[in-house]
Write a protein that binds this DNA or RNA. Sequence first.
DNA 1: TATGAATGAGGTTTCATTCAT
DNA 2: GATGAATGAAACCTCATTCAT
Lengths: 200, 200, 200, 200
Amino acid sequence: MSPRKVDKAARRKEILTAAVKVFARKGFAATRIDDIAAEAGMAKGSVYLYYDSRDALLEAAFEAYRAMSADIFDRAVNGPGPALERLAGLVHAVLDVLAARREPARIMVDLWAASRDAEKSPVDMAAVYGDSRAAIAELLRQADKEGVLRAGVSEHHAAVIVGALEGCLLQCLVDPGLPATELAEPIIQVCLEGLRRPAA
Amino acid sequence: MSPRKVDKAARRKEILTAAVKVFARKGFAATRIDDIAAEAGMAKGSVYLYYDSRDALLEAAFEAYRAMSADIFDRAVNGPGPALERLAGLVHAVLDVLAARREPARIMVDLWAASRDAEKSPVDMAAVYGDSRAAIAELLRQADKEGVLRAGVSEHHAAVIVGALEGCLLQCLVDPGLPATELAEPIIQVCLEGLRRPAA
Amino acid sequence: MSPRKVDKAARRKEILTAAVKVFARKGFAATRIDDIAAEAGMAKGSVYLYYDSRDALLEAAFEAYRAMSADIFDRAVNGPGPALERLAGLVHAVLDVLAARREPARIMVDLWAASRDAEKSPVDMAAVYGDSRAAIAELLRQADKEGVLRAGVSEHHAAVIVGALEGCLLQCLVDPGLPATELAEPIIQVCLEGLRRPAA
Amino acid sequence: MSPRKVDKAARRKEILTAAVKVFARKGFAATRIDDIAAEAGMAKGSVYLYYDSRDALLEAAFEAYRAMSADIFDRAVNGPGPALERLAGLVHAVLDVLAARREPARIMVDLWAASRDAEKSPVDMAAVYGDSRAAIAELLRQADKEGVLRAGVSEHHAAVIVGALEGCLLQCLVDPGLPATELAEPIIQVCLEGLRRPAA
DNA sequence: TATGAATGAGGTTTCATTCAT
DNA sequence: GATGAATGAAACCTCATTCAT
């Protein structure tokens, strides 16, 4: 009559969470479906009821990553307050995420590896960084309209800011000794203050 | 004396070069010993006469990467001229390497992945970045002695500069559309000019 | 009495019909219980309420095939009219079944495969062909009594007639271009006229 | 210097022979690569050095079957002597092969099953039977030119003869009790004598 | 009775590594 | 030293069957 009923979406999320955990711990290449199933507390075959393949799980992890990234950047672009303050908040937000949950961030290296050939792979980190640069560029335009930027700030500077962020994340990832949150202010100083119009 | 010693080292280098080429092209995970042997123009078994395992080849690739990186940074630290000019030269040098030979740089993502567990793996990117930060910090100290830095420049700023460099490399790697060399000047502007003491 | 007995039998038949359809379409080896359940419009688990296993369904398909075959042959043996006319009618009947519903006939190859080891498998095509030969032999005896056969017609000739029938079916199965019904008359000519006593 | 050298073609043949043996014994569906490797006296992985997949082995078995079949029919078509005698010889040859080596013939049912969907599968039994019919039809034309056939013998009679042959083979396959060789003469009588022009 | 989620044994295929020549 | 055939341990994925609801 009332056969076992599961919330498919919830189950997918459970499995994805487990997968991300294991990917973060062992790396995608070294992760076995068995590991994910064990982490999720189910049998190997059950994973396949919700995801078609191991690659599909990485892809799902990418989508989640992309959504999270987009969310952070969107909030900065569309939020209230002076543009440069929102940019500073963005820097803090990104590093806080890493500091709060180191593991999930570790899958980034697997996402980079998976997006090696942009055409063949659905994991498209180029698009993520493109979006990030566009968001930062928009923030810089907003700041420029506010008249707080010095002259000559171009699109390329957005790439540098994104780079500084990701590059600091990267260092924190490979070197657990580096304190992510403490890098926020230096990043802000270097990247933003350097672009700010000198106070008369 | 040792009639074949030179040959042995040359052979190792040949194989390593081939391996790096294939790693760059297909990624470490997708690289087969067969691919490397084919690229090196020899039989699969012969690879094992010079390297103990597939992992040993990645390790060797890491050592080469580390050496190259150390070389670039050392030259900047020990070179002649004003410190900030050497720092600017360093930025150009790093990005020029990427622009000149995109493929070899691609192995970085595999090195990152391999250095996931710092203890177990001989691939230790944390050390590389630690060295890089130390070099930049030394450059900043030199610049400070020259009196060209504004006050309050700390070790963390070195991390930001390394981060900006690596983060821009990363974006260029993932997105072939981004022109590496064109990012050099923006990086220099953002990272260095922002730290420079305002001209009286 | 037993309120659901009729339903149970009907349900079994529904499932069997669905199974035969899918077996015919995809072959037994490629048929999944899911396919059968879908074809029958029920859930996978329900199939197991009526059949113990996938093999049991093939066995049931075999029984149905055997019954149908026995029916056709029995009618020819016990029917009215001259024996050779009944034999000719039998040939037409067999080929007409194939022409009418090509799909169900396709399961024959799966039945042959399943009857590979006569001891272990309940699918026993040897018995079916044995019965067929016996029926044909009986028809030939009847014809002999009617005095219309030439001398020397033995049991083996029954095997040849069965063989010609099945062999033509096989060709039609494998080659959709061959028109089953058009083969009836040639079969009759070759097999029967050749055995008929030359008209004085 | 002189590294291990194997005759690739010979090795392929060895493996194919082993595969055919196991296919015949257990059926294609029930045959595991392990079984084939064991039968060939090698490790599982070695099989894949010579054949790409299990399906490729069935395909190879088909090619061998097709070649053998073509050979027998070609010899009958192009041989010396009266056409009907060659046809009779053909019948004996086909049944003798079965009698001599029952096992290899058993793979026929797997070939039939595999040729279920003519487009997708490289196993094309329809083509084999088409060739067989063409050969028989040619023989009948030759016999007709020799003036030994009665009138009205058409292409369809070739199908009947092929059918009688295959149908008898089939019965012998599923019923080990049926003696293949003893069916040769009845087949010849039914199929050929029935077509022969009555001696004045 | 009906359901369909869960299971896990089992099969194919890959490929790093070994080793006989 | 060089070769490349052979190995066999994994790992992915499938799917018949079970069973809680």
